[in-house]
Amino acid sequence: MNVSLRGRFALIMMIGVMAVGVVFAASLVTGFADVSPQIVWSIRAPRVVLTLVVGAGLAVAGGLLQGVFGNPLAAPSIVGVSASGAAGASIGAALGIPFNSIPLAFMGVILAGVGLIVVRAIASRDGKVNSTALLLGGVAISFFSLALVLLASPFISREAGRSFSFWANGSFALATWSGVVAVAPLAIVGLVIAFGIASRVDPLSLGSVAARALGVDADRVTQYALVAVVLLVAPGVTVVGIIAFVGLVVPHALRFFLGPRNTFLLPASAVFGGLLVASADFISRNMLAPAEIPVGAVTALVGAPVFLVLLRQMVRRGVMSI
C-alpha cells in the first residue's frame, strides 16, 4: 500500500473530523445562547445530527454510483434516486403517514429502489450499463417523480401542509429525534455495505466483464452498491427533502486529494459530506437570520461553482472517467 496515501488519508480525516466537531458545537449554541439546554437537546441537537447523517449518506452514495457506473456525473440527484425517494415521501404523506417517521422512510426506500431498478434496466444491455442512457434515464425518472410529488400534494392534509412546505424546499427546520431514528439506522446499514464492498468497486472501472475476469462479481457488487445507495439517500429525502450537489461534488473534490481508491474515498466522503451539509445548514439558519433559506440553495450555491472548476480541470486533462 502507498504510505503517502495512508498519510494523506489520516490527515484529511483528522481535519474533517475536527471541522465536524467545530460545526457541531457552533450549530448547537449559535444564536441560542439564552435558551434552555432542553431546547438545545430537543430541537438543535437532532437537527445537527441529521445534517451529518444525511450529508454522509449523500456523499457516500455519490461516490458509490460514480464508482460502479464508472461515470463521474453519476449522483443520487442525477440518476433519479433522490426524486423517486421524494415521490415515495409525498405519496406516503398524501396517504396520511407523518413526516419524520419510519413508515415514510420505508415508502421512500421502496420508490427510490423502483426508480433505480428502472433506470438501470433501461440503460443496460448484455450486462453493460450505458453511461449516457443512465444519466438520461435518471433525468426522465426525476421529472416523472417530481410530477408525482406535485400530484400528491393536494391530497396532503392541512395539518401536514406546513411540514410539506418545508420538506419540499429542502430543509432541516423540522428535524426531530424521530427523524433521526427514521434515517440513521438505514443509513448506517448503507454505510456498512458501502465500506464492505469499497475495494471491490475499484476494478469495476475497467468494465464489468474485465472485473469478472479478475474474480470480482461485478453484478453482485453493483447490486449491493445500489441497495446501499437507496438506504443512504431515500430515508434522508423523506425527512429533509432533496439536497443537490453533495453527492456529486464531495467525492469529486476528494479524488483530487486522495485518488480514486474507494477504500479511502468513501469514508472520507462520509466525513466531508456530513461536514458540507452541516455547514450549509448552519449558513442557511444564520445568513439571513431570523429568516431561514433552504439548505439545498446553499449547497447548490457552493457546490455548483466548485463542480464547474473540477469539471474544467477534468476536461483539460482529458479524463472523463473514474
Binding site: 476494478p203 468494465g207 479478475l214 473514474i322
Partner: peptide, 20 residues
C-alpha cells in the same frame, strides 16, 4: 480495456492478485 483513468499503474497491477 476502458477506464481506470485516475488509478495509478501500481494500483491497477495490484488488481491482478487482489481477488484471486
Amino acid at each position: 480495456t476502458p477506464g481506470a483513468d485516475n488509478f495509478s499503474v501500481a494500483e491497477v497491477l495490484n488488481w491482478g492478485r487482489s481477488f484471486v
